[in-house]
Design a protein around this nucleic acid. Structure first.
Lengths: 261, 261
DNA sequence: CACGATACTGAAGGACATTGCATGAACCTG
DNA sequence: CAGGTTCATGCAATGTCCTTCAGTATCGTG
């Protein structure tokens, strides 16, 4: 073949199936696919991408739209839209977060699209125990054969799709984890860690008590922002991961990790 | 990994078994195999590699794809592939099952792809409470704004992606539902309802005790089939939904519903 | 040791899959 | 409604697959 991409050393022949799997993965993480961009990125013609999308659509794995594809029907707009926001930031934070998990650790994963990105970034052969009260996260952990998943039940709060309630809190109370990835909607020098739902705030504060270390992955829009309900003061956090520089107002006892490009 | 092919002018003839083992090792490490590249590397014809891959695929050790092979992924594929199996049957059973839910009822939904199809068939404005120990089902219920979702936690059984264990059983013990949709892998005149996992069988039998009525949606391949572990005798079921006619051996006290086209 | 049976490999040929390109239709934007 | 973009289809080139066959090595048995 004369069109192949010779890169001095080796030709990375991507199998068709691999490419399709990649497309679906990408769709799950980013919530949308753009045909033209993918063609450039994967070094194939747009026709090939379009063909893939058409075939995946025929299998019902995604919905074809002009210019690319969107998740298959069952996905709800709010969630799909949320995951389409700040995609790049979330992918990078997720990758950085995934690196922090050591083999064998017991990790509590809070809900949220950023943590979804973290799951997508986990190495396939990771050996760990992951505790979560988010059915979405739990479902996404299916492919990881060496991960033990502990699902915490309760009443689902529709907005954020996590379990809440007395039973949930009690179940977390019986767990001592090594690591907690905590989802918040605000990180502020005075207000501390905040979120938009009172019960959720309470549960999240309990999560902090159930783990030795707490890590917050914060997209840029959350830094310096506040939401109505406080989870805990900043000092409760072990490390804050952001895309940019360390905010000047961070307490000195708090580690800051960059998730640069 | 590097190895020399020629040692002292003597050619290192690799035994077939050795080569196959190497292929599997390589697949485990790299996650993919490309037939053409392996042929060059191992100094055999592509046909030989292809033969190996074909045979390994027949043994279920890997998945053959155009150009090479991918992991058999006893986890990833099953779910994706299982949901692709018997699609038409599942959709019809799911639709029929969805019709059986009355507004305001408390419904226990077991895991499984058939029940996933049921969720897809639910009316958007359904008002009900759905209890489930399957994160996949729970996640799929996100779009239904008037459905209260109760998630039951536990340790996830990867194969079927449902929560199991003492906590799960106990949580179900505290629930009295109107309706239970029970997933089984066999419906047999003598063996009754059966499934392939002992703990799952035990939990399922507990589910039956937690609901006033039990409904089994059975695809054709399950009728007359048995799996190793019994859940309960046929008489425990309120209604059996199938695509075809009522099996002659069904106990007379048991309702049969057709999910015809 | 001889002999047939079996297993393994490579090669030929035809079927099949995948890809990029060309064409004209459908779509979106302003 | 004009102009660009995106799309589906048919086509040709190439790569991959399977089947079949023949040659060689290995094994088991007499």
């Amino acid at each position: 073949m004369s069109f192949s991409i010779v890169q001095d050393h080796a030709v990375w022949t991507m199998l068709t199936r691999e490419r399709k799997a990649l497309l679906l993965d990408r769709l799950a993480v980013e919530g949308r696919l753009v045909a033209a961009a993918l063609a450039i990125e994967l070094q194939v013609s747009e026709d090939t991408i379009r063909r893939d999308l058409r075939e995946l659509a025929a299998e019902g794995r995604l919905t074809r739209v002009h210019g690319g594809a969107l998740p298959a029907s069952p996905t709800h707009r709010p969630l799909a839209e949320r995951s389409a926001m700040q995609t790049e930031a979330k992918v990078r934070l997720g990758r950085r977060g995934a690196e922090l998990i050591r083999p064998g650790q017991i990790v509590i994963l809070d809900g949220g699209t950023t943590h979804m990105a973290l799951v997508q970034a986990l190495p396939r052969n990771l050996h760990a125990t992951i505790v979560t009260h988010s059915p979405t996260i739990a479902a996404a952990l299916e492919p990881f054969e060496r991960v033990d998943v502990i699902l915490i039940g309760g009443t689902l709060l529709r907005l954020s799709m996590v379990a809440l309630g007395a039973a949930t809190a009690e179940a977390f109370g019986r767990i001592s984890a090594d690591l907690l990835f905590l989802g918040v909607t605000g990180v502020h020098p005075e207000a501390g860690l905040t979120t938009g739902h009172p019960e959720e705030a309470e549960l999240k504060s309990r999560l902090i008590r159930s783990a030795a270390e707490t890590i917050v992955l914060a997209t840029p829009d959350k830094i310096g922002a506040t939401s109505p309900f406080q989870i805990a003061p900043l000092a409760s956090v072990t490390a804050l991961v952001t895309l940019g520089e360390r905010p000047s107002w961070l307490p000195s006892g708090l580690a800051h990790l960059g998730a640069g490009p």
